[in-house]
Write a protein that binds this DNA or RNA. Structure first.
Lengths: 223, 223
DNA sequence: CGTGTGGTTATTGTATACAAATCGCTTCCG
DNA sequence: CGGAAGCGATTTGTATACAATAACCACACG
């Protein structure tokens, strides 16, 4: 995207993820235009994108609101992501070159380093994690699959989840990645799929445990 | 979407599917604005949507082209659709009410009637087929899943595929739907998933057979 | 009191004018 | 002859003004 549009997207997204606005709160294009410093035209483009990522939703009459992700929504998201990303891992296992596998190892080394700091550098972990998964999706060489996954992965949950990780959880993630690399090196699609499946499913449960069984609360209802 | 934007979307989409423009051909927002009779602003919104559905693609420098669906692209699309729609069938099997199942039966009766005309009424078949699948996705009660599938199903392939169906193929489709309904009535998610899987996979092969092993042609001949 | 109806304001949708970027061609130099 | 630089024309991106629509509120009326 071009300058203003991209700017608007990044700013609004950061604004949403920062928690500065509550779920269910109404936003207007004018507000966002002021916040981002660009006119409504690029803001509208950014908003469309964020709607696609389900960070924003529209009421029946086109008014704009901050999306409210219930626990069920999050489970649903993880389930879909698991389905698609397992497929990606399977395909990647058949396609990854030695060089690409080596690149994954490098990424995971960096991820581990971030985990082993005290306290763990969660931001760096997240970035390495994102790059790792992205590389696999890229290697799956399926543009549509990549596009679908982008919608799911960009979701806010990723960030929220990370905050709830203990160092133990982060270490387990790193081990999963190691095993994934092993599966790739062995060119075993079935193995890769299985590891990816448990990796993502565990991530969901880690998150669910932190959020609690059915809590939707988080943030005062404007009652 | 609002009037002009929706108008632009529908017109451009029809224009693309009609085959009036060749794959790979460049389009400009101005052209589309003239064709649709609305200004560039809503055209741009429509174009974004069509990009999402991969009917249009952008070059590295933001220029707009008609997407070129290779046979591999189509297989990829079917594979993803199968993965997601099997999941939808599984979920639907757990959720469909008796009334909803009855509604599916009605839809499929109409579909069969369309098939048994001489010659088969393909348009009516397509509409009934679309409604049938949509009802299942709806019943799966997973907004994100629905959103992802919408992107895949809106693809042009659906229309192109139908033209290549023989009456035998259409009848088999109807039988698949019957079996799907039976699986739903039995509340058997596993059965539903399996039927949906073979249903979609067969659709792909029917298509592939018609197109030929690696043909990219996309004939405009409406034989 | 509740309810519906009118007008007023807030918000989104569309058109248009202008700015920035890109393309294709020409020209000029090596 | 090849290729790089410049320039006009084309195309996309952004801002702004205006139109259409929906929400809000006050007030009359049953």
């Amino acid at each position: 995207m071009s300058r203003a549009s991209e700017q608007a997207y990044a700013t609004i997204r950061a604004h949403l993820l920062s928690g500065a606005v509550k779920a269910g709160e109404q936003l207007t294009e004018d507000q966002l235009s002021q916040i981002t410093g660009v006119s409504r035209t690029p803001v509208r483009e950014a908003v469309r994108r964020l709607e696609g990522e389900l960070l924003l939703v529209r009421s029946d009459t086109k008014r704009l609101f901050v999306a409210d992700w219930s626990r069920d929504d999050i489970e649903e998201m993880f389930t879909l992501r698991q389905m698609l990303e397992c497929h990606a891992a399977e395909r990647a296992a058949k396609r990854l070159s030695r060089a690409q596998i080596a690149a994954l190892e490098t990424l995971n080394r960096d991820l581990k380093a971030a985990v082993e700091e005290t306290p763990p550098d969660v931001t760096r972990f997240l970035e390495a994690n994102r790059a790792f998964h992205e590389a696999i999706i890229e290697a799956a060489d399926s543009p549509r699959l990549g596009q679908l996954l982008a919608k799911l992965i960009e979701a806010p949950v990723v960030l929220r989840t990370a905050r709830t990780y203990s160092q133990g959880d982060l270490r387990q993630s790193a081990r999963d990645h190691d095993e994934l690399v092993a599966a790739f090196a062995a060119r075993d699609p079935s193995w890769a799929r299985a590891v990816m499946g448990s990796h993502l499913r565990r991530a969901f449960h880690t998150f669910a445990r932190a959020v609690g069984p059915a809590a939707t609360d988080r943030g005062g209802d404007t009652a």
